[in-house]
Nucleic acid binder design. Structure first.
Lengths: 225, 225
DNA sequence: ATCAAAAATTAGGCTGACCTAAATTATGAT
DNA sequence: ATCATAATTTAGGTCAGCCTAATTTTTGAT
């Protein structure tokens, strides 16, 4: 029977979902680090989660874990709530995009189905959170969006920002200062040959920003014309 | 140092606060019943809570417990959050007054200081929750209101409702059907001599409602002219 | 004042979710 | 192919917060 699902289990599932988005398996160490607990504890918990009825994930020794369809639904449910909260806080309570992640991380576990419905309705069924991450709909479907990494832009080419999936408030404030946010139009000015650091221009604000290579890979854009 | 205060401790403090509002001490059994746990567990926990630094409460064997000033502040903080959430859900998210208690009971533990501030501001510093219970202000002060029990009204006299402090959704829906809510104007039609059951008329709706003696003691009113 | 019933406490245990240390298995550079 | 290192798992332990059963203390009716 589908037992009640505790907060930390939700956190495990969410992390595993994120780590396996690109198809692979999530490793014990990865999860331990992301969850801020020891690797031994992770091994222990994933063994349990692979033995529930139905199981949340499949586990093979030393091979990492992968969510079952059941586990994925559970993960998407939390992710939906997380992202709904984020956009609600920004739209209705004056939060900035760097403040909402930490808040949502806690509130997501306290959100009832009714509250989820009401917030979804109050925002007219939003499709994206403040960072441009897609919000799974009521059936937990995620809209597919075509997107490229900012770092793949050619010099002189233009694009507009789709996603800035970074939880770090410092980074978000830095980007926000230049006007880099979902929807912003940008143009790649230059790139250093050595480490691929980019200089980009933001159309809306006229600012120029320096973006390092790792951040450049995380920011998703659509290429314009 | 003020250690982090877990959810169940918050629940203990809230209950003790409620039970000792009228000056006495909260008994082990009372608390056990209210919290849905065994009396032995309560004894155990209150002993701990009386030995923290600073202590949340004073405990003497077989004499019940009483909050310290420190414990009271902690309780009031949760109560403030609980009531702010209740009124917010009604005002901004279309909840009815019978739905909000259960929701707030969970959300109160997930609410940050920032969220508390934003919600307080969004509602322009509300003074009462949907049941007419006063919301402690930012300094945790509670406005004193003069109030009498509905049951003390004389036949033929009028009044208006101040508080309907009942968590039971069924009761709240029953009362709501007649238009009995904070602010409603009422008049006592009759009272049965045997068990004090009252028949009252609600001015706004023109309805008449039957109110039993225990509920009559819980509903607070102000007498009109 | 007595004493049965009610209330509270003590003693001893359980479980979930974490930990460290030790042992095992996998990996990749040579 | 070997082997040092990294990754993972196993073993054994802690702690918070609950439990039941047994015991002690208080209370109130007579």
């Amino acid at each position: 029977m589908p037992q009640k699902i505790s907060e930390n289990i939700q956190d495990y599932l969410k992390r595993i979902y994120e780590f396996t988005l690109s198809g692979g398996r999530a490793s014990t160490n990865q999860l331990a680090q992301a969850l801020g607990i020891s690797a031994a504890s992770v091994t222990n918990m994933v063994q349990k989660l692979s033995k529930t009825e139905p199981p949340y994930l499949t586990y093979e020794k030393h091979q990492g874990v992968k969510l079952t369809a059941f586990g994925q639904q559970a993960a998407l449910k939390i992710i939906r709530r997380h992202r709904l909260i984020e956009i609600y806080l920004v739209e209705k309570l004056g939060y900035t995009w760097d403040e909402v992640h930490a808040e949502a991380e806690i509130l997501e576990h306290a959100m009832s189905s009714l509250l989820e419905k009401r917030i979804d309705a109050a925002l007219d069924h939003p499709k994206f959170d403040p960072h441009g991450d897609p919000i799974p709909d009521i059936n937990l479907e995620i809209p597919e969006i075509e997107q490229t990494a900012l770092s793949s832009l050619k010099i002189g080419n233009k694009g507009h920002v789709l996603r800035v999936p970074n939880e770090d408030p410092q980074v978000l404030r830095y980007l926000g200062k230049f006007g880099i946010r979902p929807g912003a139009h940008i143009k790649l000015i230059s790139r250093t040959p050595y480490d691929q650091t980019m200089r980009i221009k933001i159309t809306e604000t006229g600012n120029e920003a320096i973006i390092g290579p790792s951040l450049g890979k995380k920011i998703s854009i659509a290429k314009d014309s």
